[in-house]
Design a protein around this nucleic acid. Structure first.
Length: 299
DNA sequence: ACTCGTGTTAGCTG
DNA sequence: TCAGCTAACACGAG
C-alpha cells in the first residue's frame, strides 16, 4: 500500500484538484469497497454536494462536504482508505489525469475500467476515482477517526514513549498498530527498525529509553525522507535489500526474513540481531577476530 | 499451478 | 476487559 507518505500525496491531490467541484453522479455499486453501506446510499448522500476540505490521519483520509443548495448545514464526511493497492485518480474537465497513492501498480498494465471501485462524477465532466486492483480499499461515510492513534508524523517524543512501550508485544507489531500510532505500514516499519538498529522481534518492554529515543528519531527521518522523495515507502534504504540474498546496505551482512506480528519482515542479521547489547559487543569482537564479514559492494 | 502480499478486522484465547 | 494472535478478505503479480 500506500503507507502514510503516499496517502499524504493522495490527500494533496484531492485538496489541489477535487475541491469545489459539484458532484453530479456517484458510482457506489461495489458494495465490498463501500461496506457497510448499501448500493445507492453514497450516491444519495453525496450528489449535489462539493468536497470542501481533504484531511488525513495515518492512512485514513476524509473529505468534508458542502450543504445542499447553499445550505449552511454540511454534508457527511467522505472517508477514503487506499488499502493495499488503492490510488486516487482525478480527471480534469479536459481529460487530463492526475494520480496519487499506490505506486507499485503504476506503469504496469493499462488501467482496466473495472478497477475503478468508486467514482465521483463532477458537473464539469471530470471525475475522482478510487482505482484499486486488489479491492481492499474502502469508502465510507463518517469514518471513526477516533479509533486511530496520533498521526505518525505528528506524534511527540513523550506520546511516542507512552504509546510504544506498554505491554510485551514485538516492537514491529506495535509500530503497525494503527490504534497506537497511525500511518506506519509494513515497509516503513522495516525501514524504521533498520535505521534504529533494533530487532523487529524485541518485546516493547525490553526496549531501553535510548532505544525508544533512537526509534523515534528514525521514525521522523524515515517519514520525512519518504515524503520528500515523492511519497514512496519504496524509497527507503533497506527496501531494496528485502529479498532473498539481500545484504545490509550499511554493514554488508545478510538480511534475514521471517514473520513478526503476522507480517513479512526483513532485518539485518548482524545489526538487528535479537540479543542484548553486551553480548552483541562481545560477539562483535569475536566476529571481527575470527570471521570478519565479507563486505559486498552496494550496487 | 501455486504462493505471496506496501492493510484492516472479526473472532478467538488466555 | 484487555493484550495479543490468526485467519480471512480479494485478486493481481511473479
Amino acid at each position: 500500500m500506500p503507507e502514510e507518505p503516499e496517502v499524504e500525496i493522495a490527500r494533496r491531490l484531492i485538496a489541489d484538484l477535487a475541491l469545489g467541484r459539484r458532484i453530479t453522479g456517484v458510482d457506489d455499486a461495489d458494495t465490498f469497497v463501500t461496506r457497510p453501506h448499501s448500493p445507492g446510499e453514497l450516491r444519495e448522500a453525496l450528489t449535489g454536494r462539493t468536497l470542501t476540505a481533504a484531511h488525513r490521519r495515518g492512512k485514513t483520509m476524509w473529505c468534508e462536504t458542502s450543504g445542499l443548495d447553499g445550505s449552511a448545514v454540511p454534508g457527511p464526511d467522505l472517508g477514503i482508505h487506499l488499502g493495499m493497492s488503492g490510488r486516487i485518480v482525478v480527471t480534469a474537465p479536459d481529460g487530463w489525469v492526475a494520480e496519487g497513492g499506490d505506486p507499485a501498480g503504476r506503469d504496469a498494465q493499462p488501467r482496466k475500467a473495472e478497477w475503478d471501485r468508486f467514482t465521483l462524477e463532477f458537473a464539469d465532466g471530470g471525475q475522482l476515482a478510487l482505482f484499486d486492483k486488489r479491492r481492499l480499499g474502502r469508502i465510507m461515510l463518517n469514518p471513526d477517526i477516533g479509533a486511530l492513534g496520533p498521526d505518525a508524523a505528528e506524534v511527540t517524543p513523550a506520546q511516542f514513549r507512552a504509546l510504544i512501550t506498554k505491554g510485551t508485544i514485538a516492537v514491529k507489531a506495535r509500530l503497525l498498530d494503527q490504534s497506537k500510532i497511525a500511518g506506519i505500514g509494513n515497509l516503513l516499519a522495516d525501514e524504521i527498525l533498520w535505521q534504529a538498529k533494533i530487532s523487529p522481534a524485541t518485546p516493547v518492554n525490553r526496549l531501553q529509553r535510548k532505544d525508544v529515543d533512537r526509534l523515534y528519531r528514525a521514525l521522523r527521518s524515515v517519514l520525512a525522507s519518504a515524503l520528500a522523495e515523492g511519497g514512496g515507502a519504496h524509497t527507503g534504504d533497506v527496501i531494496a535489500a528485502r529479498r532473498p540474498g539481500g545484504r545490509c546496505p550499511r554493514c554488508g551482512h545478510e538480511m534475514v526474513h521471517g514473520t513478526v506480528g503476522g507480517r513479512s519482515t526483513w532485518w539485518c542479521s548482524w545489526e538487528q540481531a535479537a540479543r542484548p547489547l553486551a553480548l552483541r559487543f562481545a560477539g562483535q569482537v569475536a566476529h571481527n577476530l575470527d570471521f570478519g564479514p565479507q563486505r559486498q559492494a552496494i550496487p
